[in-house]
Simulated assay, not measured.
Amino acid sequence: MTGRPLSDAEVERLRGAPFTYSDVGSTRTGAMPDGYGVLLRSVVVGSGPERFERASQAVLRWDMHRRAGLTVRPSNDPVALGTVAVVRLGPGPLGLDAPVRVVYLVDEPRRQGFAYGTLPGHPERGEEAFVVELQADGSVTFTITAFSRPATLVARLTGPVGRRIQSLVTNRYLRAV
């Protein structure tokens, strides 16, 4: 789902906001920081160059998020380095806004994707990467790598329920690609 576009003021505020964690880029290196829950999920989404292209576009154009039932208000579509977005989970006044900024892009002939990091106002602290890869055998894999921990009192109070919600959203992402 697409919400109202971000205003210029919102884009400027989010681009200037600090990340809410210090280990920016750790999903790229695989060296996950201590004190965070770590998630690594991968699934084969098909085979061949055409499937790789479609899956890559689903990730880079925010379709994965939208197909997973989230509302996305990005500053750029497709994703670019420095893109900011407000991702919203849930309807109306019960929904949670999750501001993020893209920390890096993966733009290789056989690997496409990006990672974003959390900004102030996000219920969690951490980073999440979404990468599509065309393997040597022709299979296409989609991998989500993340580390996070609660950033707000509400997120801390949800405990295992919050982790379950994160797992459900991850499953939706995997199915959406």
Rank of each mutant, 00 (worst) to 15 (best):
S47I: 05
A17E: 04
R54F: 07
V11F: 07
F142Q: 13
G126I: 12
G159T: 09
S22D: 13
V24C: 08
R164K: 09
V45E: 07
L119W: 07
E50N: 12
M32C: 13
P91V: 09
P93S: 02
E127S: 03
G92E: 06
V44Q: 12
P78E: 05
R15T: 12
R149D: 08
Q166A: 12
V177N: 12
D8K: 15
L70K: 01
R54V: 09
V43H: 09
Q135P: 07
E50W: 07
V161T: 14
G35S: 14
T152R: 03
R61Y: 12
S22C: 13
V177K: 07
V132S: 03
R156A: 07
A9N: 14
P74D: 05
T27F: 02
A129I: 13
L157C: 06
T143M: 06
A155K: 07
R88L: 00
G69C: 06
V106M: 15
G90F: 03
R66F: 05
L81E: 03
A146D: 04
G25T: 02
S75F: 02
V103S: 09
E12V: 14
L60M: 11
G95L: 01
R51M: 04
R164P: 11
A68V: 01
V131L: 06
L14F: 11
G138C: 06
R15V: 11
S42R: 15
P91Q: 12
D97K: 00
T83Q: 08
S148L: 06
V43Q: 11
V100C: 03
F114H: 04
G30Y: 13
G46I: 01
V79D: 04
T71G: 00
P123G: 10
T20R: 04
T170M: 03
A176M: 03
R88N: 02
Q166C: 12
V87H: 01
A9E: 15
V44G: 06
S47W: 07
E133P: 03
E50K: 15
E50M: 10
A129W: 04
G121P: 09
E12W: 08
L81W: 02
V161I: 15
F147D: 01
A85P: 10
E128S: 05
G69W: 01
P93R: 00
V86M: 03
S75E: 00
Y104H: 15
A58Q: 13
R88V: 01
Y21R: 10
M32T: 13
G162V: 02
D23E: 10
E12P: 06
L89T: 01
M1V: 03
A85N: 08
S47N: 08
V106P: 13
L134G: 11
T83A: 11
I165N: 02
T83V: 14
L6W: 01
R163A: 11
P160S: 15
R111A: 14
V132R: 02
